[in-house]
């Protein structure tokens, strides 16, 4: 009980957010959507104390709110929109907004490559499939209704809650007033072996270079070489598997 009281500030917005998303999910019955919207706004406002960035300069904070707000709101819209095409578009906007956050945290290459891969390729493929399956105007009910709205959103909010609690452990509300200076340029402490590698350090004269292509490449192909090669191999196997699974032309494709 004590724990619940202590963490009221997180539990109430999480519950409100869950209610809002569940309420906004498309259904057959007419619901006043404004109620869900109000609940969502209330949840965001309560969480705001935790999510506010530390006091920084005005432009940075403004951009942060622009990108973060867009990301959260469009993510909600993506889940609750009735039309799959609009959902895919909101997803594209979520990706763009998150890339804006990457840029703010001086990771331009991550931002650009996320745009190329997600917004430029994956969501375009989604759109391709949706267009094949569903023409504008015609609507099939199975595409427009969630199967388990309450349970699915509960699961998602449990995950979100776990994330927020972890963040709180790391600083959260109490650590908020710490000055906004990246201490080593990393969010999580590096393993000792990697921290000792001179290649993965930002040059002393230009600490902003930590997110640049040069440092990123050195880190990926120096410290994390094994993981990178492993991921590449898994992708290659997946590609070969996809080609093997696809029917031959002689067997009649499509």
């Amino acid at each position: 009980m004590e724990w619940t009281e202590e963490n009221m500030l997180l539990l109430i917005p999480l519950g409100l957010g869950w209610l809002a998303v569940w309420w906004l999910m498309p259904t057959n019955t007419k619901r006043p959507r404004i109620l869900g919207g109000l609940a969502a706004v209330a949840a965001l406002l309560m969480l705001q104390m935790m999510l506010l960035p530390p006091a920084g300069d005005l432009v940075r904070n403004g951009l942060f709110f622009l990108f973060a707000g867009t990301a959260v709101i469009t993510a909600g819209l993506m889940i609750t929109d009735r039309s799959p095409v609009y959902s895919a578009l909101w997803f594209a906007l979520v990706t763009l907004a998150v890339c804006g956050l990457f840029l703010l945290n001086s990771a331009p290459f991550l931002a650009a490559s996320t745009i190329i891969v997600y917004a430029g390729a994956i969501i375009v493929t989604f759109m391709f499939v949706i267009m094949l399956a569903q023409q504008s105007g015609t609507s099939s009910s199975y595409d427009q209704q969630p199967f388990q709205p309450a349970v699915a959103s509960l699961g998602a909010f449990l995950l979100l809650g776990a994330l927020l609690f972890t963040l709180q452990e790391w600083g959260g509300i109490d650590g908020k007033n710490a000055p906004d200076e990246p201490k080593t340029g990393q969010f999580v402490a590096l393993p000792a072996g990697i921290a000792a590698n001179p290649l993965s350090q930002a040059p002393a004269d230009n600490p902003r270079e930590i997110g640049s292509l040069r440092v990123l490449g050195r880190s990926l192909f120096g410290d994390y070489l094994f993981a990178v090669e492993l991921a590449g191999t898994v992708l290659l196997i997946a590609t070969i598997g996809a080609i093997a699974l696809a029917p031959r032309r002689s067997q009649g494709t499509l």
Binding site: F109, A112, S113, I115, I116, A119, G120, A121, L213
Partner: peptide, 9 residues
């Protein structure tokens, strides 16, 4: 990379 990102949009 910026140009490729934007033109892919």
């Amino acid at each position: 990379v910026f140009i490729f990102a934007v033109t892919s949009l």
